[in-house]
């Protein structure tokens, strides 16, 4: 027995990697995917900076242990989103 949601996006409740046109990559639990963008809960963000960890390193670490919930909720604007994929597919 559990709680299930109907009439929601297929990624609702799934932890996803949201890549953007800019230097930021978000990882969080998808609540909604709509015209405004992707609403994530409990999300972490990677900001590419010179000399810092690479995106590959960030994603490898996050795929192993999960995202740190640094942002309670965030909307990644649709115009910035280039891909949305399951984090679990990276750790498989």
């Amino acid at each position: 027995m559990g709680t299930f949601h109907h009439d929601t996006h297929e990624l609702h409740g799934i932890t996803c990697v949201v890549e953007t046109r800019g230097p930021r990559t978000w990882v969080g639990r998808v609540h909604e995917v709509g015209p405004a963008g992707v609403l994530l809960h409990d999300a972490d963000v990677f900001d590419e900076v010179p000399g810092g960890p690479t995106k590959a390193e960030f994603l490898a670490r996050t795929a192993a242990v999960g995202p740190w919930p640094r942002h309670k909720s965030v909307v990644v604007p649709a115009a910035e989103v280039t891909s949305v994929r399951r984090l679990g597919d990276l750790s498989a």
Binding site: G13, A63, V65, R86, G88
Partner: peptide, 11 residues
């Protein structure tokens, strides 16, 4: 050994 939520989702 640790299994986080995202390794449970959809499996």
């Amino acid at each position: 050994h640790f299994v986080p939520r995202h390794q449970i989702e959809g499996r």
